[in-house]
Every structure is written in C-alpha cells, then in structure tokens.
Design a binder for these strands. Structure first.
Lengths: 204, 204
DNA sequence: CAGCTTTTGTATCGAGTGGTAGATAAGTCA
DNA sequence: TGACTTATCTACCACTCGATACAAAAGCTG
C-alpha cells in the first residue's frame, strides 16, 4: 500500500525515451533538457525517480539488457557453435539497423570516452558488453564438450572475436551503414566458424 | 615573410596534446579548460590558431591521419591479400594498445554520438574511418587482378570486414583489453583470408 | 472531512560551457 | 627608431550544465 501522490508517468515508457536519447547522443551529449523533454517530465520528477543522470542511464541500461535478453536466449539456443555465431551476428545486423531505434548499439554509442564527472560511464558500458561475451564463451565451451566445436578451437577467443565484431558493427551502423552491409560483415565473419560440410584442418 | 608577433607555441606539439585529450575524453567530453591546459595555451590563442573547438578537432584529426599514413603504407605493401590483412590487423593491435597514446582509436573514441551543436562530429569521424576502408578495398581489387586473391572473393566485403574488426578492436581496447587480447582477435579474423598453403574451395 | 505522504511544477542554484573584446607585448619592415 | 602586424593575456560574455528548495497538488487512510 503506497501512500502519497501517485506517480503521474509510466516509468518504463519514460525509460524507453531516455534510452533513445542516450543512444542517439551518448551520455555526455544527452542533456537534462533533452532527457526531460523526451520523457515528458520535469527535472525534479526525474531526480526523484532515478536519483541522478547516471542513475537514469543505469536504469535505461537495465531495460536495454532486458530487451536483448530474449534475443540472446534465441542465439544461445543454436544447435552448434557455428549456428550460435550465425544467429548472433545476424540478430546484431537486424537490431543495429532497426528503424525503431537509433542505429548502432547503446552499449557502444552510449559513451566510450567521457568528460570530467562521467569517468565511470565507459566502465559501466564495458562491463555490460562483457556479459554478452561471457555468455558466448560459456556456450562455446559447452559446444566443445558436446563435440560440435573442434577441440583445437579456442572458445574464449571465438567469443571475444564475435563480441568485437558486434562492437564494430555498432560503429558501422552508427555511421549509417545499411542492413545489407552489416549482413555482409556477418557473412565474412562466419569464416572463423567453418561449416561442417566444408570442414578443413586448420593449423595454428 | 610573416609579419607581427611570432607564435610562441609549437602548433604540432599543441595538436598532439589536443589529440590526446579528444582521444581520452571524446569531443563532447573534452572541455576547453582541459584542452587549453593540456596544450599550454590560453583560449584566445587556441581560437586564433584553429578557429573553433571543431576546427581544433579537425586539425588534430589531420595530424592523426598523418601518423597513421606510414602504418598504412607498410600495410598496403603486403605482397598478398592475406598478408595485407595480417599486417593491418596486427598493426591495429599494436597501435591501439600503445602506452604512449590513450587506448583505442581516436576515430572511434572521438565521438560516435554527440550532443546539440556537435552533430557533425560523428560524420566527420565516420568519413575518416571510411578512408581506410577504401584504401583496403582498392588494394584488394588490385590483389584480385594480380591473382593473389581468389576470383570468388568480394574485395569490398573483405575491406568492410577488416574495417569493422578494427573499429571493434578500438572499442575493446578502450575498455582495457591488452595487446594479447587484440592479437587473438586479429588471428581469428584472419580466418576470412585463407592461407594459400591450406587453400580450400569456398562456396558462396 | 482532516491528516499524512509523496509527486509535481516553478524558479533557481553555483559551476562550468564555448567563445570573445580590448589592451598589451613582441616581433618584422621601412 | 618608429610604424605596422600579429599573438598573448586578463577579464568577461551569454548561456547551458546537472541538480535542488520550496510550495502547491494529488492521492490514500482514518
């Protein structure tokens, strides 16, 4: 039983708007004026609900992670390492060019380098990017145990490779590359995951 | 024959310092206070020499391109498509983790998304990134003509792939990845450039 | 209704933003 | 030397930044 005046705005809707602003302008580039206008609330309401600009970003990142978690569930459900990689890269190509969102990836656009007073933002984003890499790595280790990833392969290296390509696709998308361009990058990247039907002995 | 009081600071030295600030903090995160302190000059000198904050960035980018041009000359001098790719990725792994500079790539860290009044910065950086991709593409087209790149390969796709991986490595390096991590990504990426000694027919 | 709690809007805080006016200093050229 | 040109410095501009004090409003509970 909550007492007092009820909140007059939908927190999740407001977070979606804030997410878009951070996504499009980065943390430093997103001003409180932009944020409050997009969210349809005044500064004091924002601070009452999220504590600070950084707290708002964190809440938006949580919501972003929620969105992506269903994609990752589908990705990790691939039946082989290659299929996982294929699903991962193609879903990235789709989501990073989804016209419903700003182009690219919030975890990249959000801020790789920030100014004084925002020094921890890049770390925050990096740690969230690392989560995806970890999920992939663990999936590949399992794939190796299951035998659908060659014993000579390095699950950690493959996961890091995919994560890196995903970040690169975020950069590419942010500069206006279209979906086909990203799909092409995905296709080339899959060379690192030899198709069973054309398997060949890889040295190194 | 220049008239008037001579400039009391070294423009190139000052640009190197400005470059480092933009590199570490991004365009929006780099304040004039930071810049002038790092450059060792006062604001009016900065504006007299470079016109504006944006002009300063452009001058720093020109200098950055100058630095990288010698690397690229070495890269493009590789004798086969694969060797070009190998040189490219390995030189990226080195330069993006060079302790003499901030980690990552200025063209990525500089600002993928900016605030009001800096909208054109991301485009500026993107167009500079595109130059490298173009150099690679033209080199690969030449490689195809020379016969050291399979006729079935797509030079444009390969160049875009490499450029994308390079951006991704920039993101990775910016979040503290060490040189070995980047080298590993480079090694995996080279799967897209089959070694002649283990050449295998690739469909698609 | 009254009493309590929380949110909302207005108006504003001090600090910092990019950028500049105007006086002074430091050189070159005649 | 003295006129001319350009750079540098101090001080400051109008504005925006993230964040907040305070009072009015809106709900629930008794």
């Amino acid at each position: 039983m909550v007492m007092g005046r009820p909140r007059s705005f939908d927190t999740d809707k407001a977070l979606d708007e804030a997410m878009e602003v951070f996504w499009r302008h980065g943390y430093d580039g997103a001003s409180l004026t932009m944020l409050t206008r997009a969210m349809g609330i005044k500064a004091p309401s924002l601070y009452a609900a999220f504590g600070s600009k950084e707290g708002l970003l964190r809440a938006a990142l949580d919501r972003y992670a929620l969105r992506r978690s269903e994609h990752m569930r589908y990705v990790l459900a691939g039946t082989s390492a290659r299929e996982v990689a294929e699903r991962f890269l193609n879903s990235i190509a789709e989501s990073h060019t989804d016209p419903a969102n700003p182009p690219g990836c919030l975890l990249v656009q959000g801020g790789l380098a920030c100014g004084e007073g925002s020094e921890n933002i890049p770390f925050e984003l990096a740690s969230r990017r690392a989560l995806t890499e970890t999920e992939l790595r663990e999936r590949f280790i399992r794939a190796q145990d299951d035998g659908d990833l060659a014993e000579a392969s390095d699950p950690a290296a493959l996961a890091r490779f995919l994560s890196t390509v995903a970040s690169g696709m975020g950069v590419l998308a942010s500069s206006g590359a279209d979906r086909d361009a990203l799909r092409e990058v995905a296709r080339v990247s899959l060379s690192a995951f030899p198709d069973p039907s054309t398997r060949v002995s890889t040295k190194s």
